[in-house]
């Protein structure tokens, strides 16, 4: 109301839409990133199991996994 009195159009709805687009686009990529990383960690865990069954193979450590004490 005050904005319109000052001659400034009230288009805050488009700003909200833009912020929603920011959340959807960046959030979407982030979710895709997390899903892909989880899938890789599952694969790495499966490979570790196979390694235990078949004998030693090189171990793969996922990014962000804390180092284990030897």
């Amino acid at each position: 109301m005050l904005l319109q009195e000052a001659g400034i159009p009230d288009n805050v709805a488009y700003l909200v839409l833009g912020l929603a687009a920011l959340v959807v686009i960046f959030g979407g990529w982030l979710v895709s990133f997390i899903v892909r990383l989880r899938g890789l960690r599952r694969d790495a865990a499966l490979l570790a199991e196979l390694e235990a069954e078949d004998g030693p193979v090189q171990t793969v450590v996922a990014p962000g996994t804390p180092a284990q004490a030897k």
Binding site: L3, I8, P9, N11, V12, Y14, L15, G18
Partner: peptide
């Protein structure tokens, strides 16, 4: 500050 174009300019 709000521009003459309104809040959408913040994008």
């Amino acid at each position: 500050p709000t521009d003459r174009q309104g809040d959408v300019q913040r994008l």
